[in-house]
Design a protein around this nucleic acid. Structure first.
Length: 328
DNA sequence: TAGGCCATCTGGTCCT
DNA sequence: AGGACCAGATGGCCTA
């Protein structure tokens, strides 16, 4: 349970009051073992600290044998020491909370720059880190090869080791049916479609590290309950979104993170902001004309479709991404 | 209801 | 001494 600032103030006050009382009255307080504030267990762990700190203030320091440390003597906590410890602990807790909040903020920032970001379906911490790692690796592969990757291999690389829900989410962001980029199926599909791609976007050819410990090519975690079928790779994952704007089915909230460019047209090659915007939108048209002529527009830029009502706030990560790319 | 995810508390350790 | 960092424990919430 979070501790409110009021609690901290209250306990701090209590501590001061206790100290004052002890100073004034020279109270001989010994800590009661019946205290139920949860801090008594600290008695054993803090018996060595603050030795002599009371400076002979008159506080009773009863000595007793420790049941756990044979032969060592320990000093029982006075109420004042107990209160000071309590305040110290409260402060430490607050710092720890702030630290974790900072960590979470950083993680949230990371969520916004990985290829799959949604306000409604947040990636878990571990999935965010995994996806980010996959994304970095995939991009570095593209930079190294300087060639256009195969879409499905790219997505496979992104989804390595991710859970089924996350895989589905990534698929949704890319408007793919996750069934279609299962490794074994991807091979079939690739053989069925074209061989025209210039890049062979290998999954782990020059991966500088051992394969992810969590991820293998085993796709059993993906749609394990569904029979495997070979579908069109660009079968819209949310068909109703594209075909029926008045549908009552849940709308797919467009991905808010920087959309992926899977055809290698990365924006740093462009000169102006206008060109960036243009290429950014165009690059999201998957360069897969060979795939049954399907052209999937990123919902973000499907201006002809009114199905997506994305708040402008959601463009934040895009702007950040754009700026970063242009400065690259 | 079990399991996953998360926030928080906590004590230990290391560093400044 | 105090703060940062870490990992374990715990309990709440949510979902399949």
């Amino acid at each position: 349970m979070p501790v409110s600032q009021q609690d901290v103030s209250k306990w701090t006050e209590e501590c001061r009051a206790t100290q004052n009382m002890e100073t004034v009255n020279g109270a001989h307080n010994t800590m009661s073992n019946d205290d139920d504030d949860g801090f008594n267990r600290m008695e054993e762990n803090n018996d060595d600290e603050e030795q002599g700190e009371e400076g002979g203030s008159g506080e009773e320091e009863s000595l007793e044998e420790s049941p756990k440390r044979h032969g060592t003597k320990r000093k029982k906590m006075t109420k004042a020491r107990q209160q000071r410890f309590k305040v110290r602990r409260i402060k430490a807790n607050e710092r720890e909370r702030n630290r974790m909040h900072g960590l979470n903020d950083a993680l949230e920032s990371l969520r916004k720059v990985v290829p799959c970001y949604s306000n409604t379906q947040k990636l878990s911490k571990i999935e965010t880190l995994r996806l980010a790692k996959n994304y970095i690796w995939a991009l570095s592969e593209i930079l190294q090869s300087d060639e256009s990757p195969e879409l499905m291999l790219f997505v496979q690389a992104l989804c390595q080791g991710l859970s089924q829900p996350t895989t589905n989410l990534v698929a949704g962001c890319l408007q793919l049916n996750p069934r279609t980029f299962l490794p074994e199926q991807a091979q079939d599909i690739l053989s069925q479609v074209h061989q025209t791609s210039t890049a062979s976007f290998s999954l782990y050819p020059s991966y500088p590290y051992p394969s992810p410990p969590y991820g293998t090519m085993d796709s059993s975690h993906i749609h394990h309950a569904k029979p495997h079928t070979v579908d069109n790779a660009l079968e819209p994952f949310f068909e109703t979104t594209f075909t029926d704007c008045t549908s009552t089915s849940p709308r797919f909230e467009g991905p808010l993170s920087p959309p992926l460019s899977v055809n290698g047209n990365f924006s740093y090659k462009h000169k102006s902001m206008a060109e960036f915007d243009k290429s950014y939108a165009l690059s999201i048209q998957y360069a897969t004309q060979g795939l049954a002529g399907v052209q999937c527009l990123h919902p973000f830029y499907a201006s002809s479709s009114q199905c997506f009502d994305i708040p402008m706030d959601n463009f934040m990560s895009y702007e950040t991404h754009k700026e970063r790319m242009l400065n690259a």
